[in-house]
Design a protein around this nucleic acid. Structure first.
Lengths: 261, 261
DNA sequence: CAGTGGTCTAGACCACATG
DNA sequence: ATGTGGTCTAGACCACTGG
């Protein structure tokens, strides 16, 4: 049996059959696809499905729920948009971990500011020398055409991607970046190697948007899913900018807390 | 001619015809509905359509763009989700003001913190005595079953709704609320009438979600459109909580700036 | 009442990922 | 080669809104 073929005896089929068993309410009060959405989103929320589990294909699902494939797709589309499911073309539909809302205090250290009990890990996607972004030119006071180091990382909570960030560093500030980060994989350690032991958040900007292809891929979301962006700037005690950060969260997975002193 | 009937000679039909005139690219590189989305979103962005203008119905639009109604709907759905259009059942499809990104500094006074040149106005939707929310019970230290004043307002920029807020006040803090707010319609003036001349922001929380029916209606958005919520707490100089605020922005209409001192 | 957007069906073809 | 999700069509019925 091919790996991508869905097994007929997968236990998830029984669970879905159970969800589909109840008759639909009068569809004038709530449309069929919304009723299907209700049942599946609730099932995801209370973790009836194992996070990461694969669902049967759209044809099979439509058959199980006794509707046309397009009606089924309507429900599936919203379930994706709200982060419950993630469909991959040519592969299948997968259950995303339920979108708990994680509270982030605006500290600088991710691990310290995330209020949770799970296991946090980091994955570096790429570290590259690149032409500086307009923002970097401005804050690092670079001439046009200058270069910076761009670092792409994701943060995982219990192995599920939760946060995608692009950081931009100046080689004038951190000349030994590649050497140190390459060895330790830690930004903090890289700061320390350059004599920066303390630093501060100088500005945070929060805005909403729709995930780019890269962001969606990294976070296991469907492209164009709504997300929250957090742009932040760190500076050393003298006020010199040392880090530009552009983070991306699934819309409903984070609650940012900004206490006032 | 009935008001809801779309006039055939509306100049917008010509504009749409012009947009539809160019042949579609190979649909394998970008699907037809996305190409239609591209053209219409760009037209909205550069304000080819007057904000508030009504578009022809879906059947007419599909005909103009030479596609099936469902293909057209696909484009229209995304245009709504991203805040370009707003469809009202039984009424029509309307152009929303282009979603400029307004920069909000975390000051307390809306008008001061909004960085723009437009005319800001306020509309009070309701002022009611209500059973206190759990949050209000906590922050105002109220006994279960106590009441608060709930104030629903929208903020308009050049007559377009931009921000919907629910404020909750304690009558123990502001006993003359109805009297003073009723006369002046100003929260600041109500504070002053109670001897509160200065106050501070004690906490701000930012999170994402999907607009409720009420929020969508107030902001002229389609229900379940992604939005950004800002929960904030104001306190007087002694630290006593005087205002709970829950604001709602269209996802892409705001950029919140939190400077660090 | 007529026109609108919202839902639903049946059927078809396509590009993609995997084995 | 196969099954997957993504797109597209033609046609139908419905509920809501406004005049």
């Amino acid at each position: 049996m091919a790996k991508t073929t869905f097994p007929d005896d997968d236990p998830i089929v029984d669970q879905l059959s159970a969800l589909a068993a109840a008759p639909y309410e009068n569809k004038t009060t709530r449309s069929i696809w919304l009723q299907i959405y209700d049942r599946l989103s609730e099932a995801c929320r209370i973790e009836i499905f194992e996070p990461g589990a694969r669902l049967p294909g759209e044809y099979k699902l439509a058959e199980l729920f006794g509707v046309n494939r397009l009606t089924m797709r309507n429900a599936l589309t919203r379930l994706q948009r709200e982060g419950f499911l993630h469909a991959r073309k040519g592969v299948g539909i997968f259950v995303r971990p339920p979108a708990k809302r994680y509270v982030i205090k605006d500290n600088m250290r991710f691990a310290n500011s995330l209020v949770t009990t799970g296991a946090i890990s980091t994955q570096t996607l790429s570290v590259e020398k690149r032409r500086a972004s307009p923002e970097a030119q401005k804050y690092y006071e670079l001439p046009p055409g200058a270069h910076t180091v761009e670092l792409h990382r994701i943060r995982l909570l219990d192995d599920a991607p939760l946060y995608y960030a692009v950081k931009e560093f100046s080689l004038k500030v951190l000349p030994r970046f590649f050497e140190v980060y390459g060895e330790f994989g830690s930004v903090i350690k890289t700061y320390e190697a350059h004599g920066i032991t303390t630093y501060k958040r100088s500005e945070t900007r929060v805005l909403g948007g729709f995930a780019s292809r890269a962001e969606a891929e990294a976070l296991h979301l469907s492209p164009k899913t709504p997300v929250i962006y957090v742009h932040s700037i760190n500076a050393d005690p003298s006020g010199r900018v040392i880090e530009l950060n552009r983070g991306c969260w699934p819309l409903t997975s984070v609650e940012l807390v900004f206490p006032s002193p």
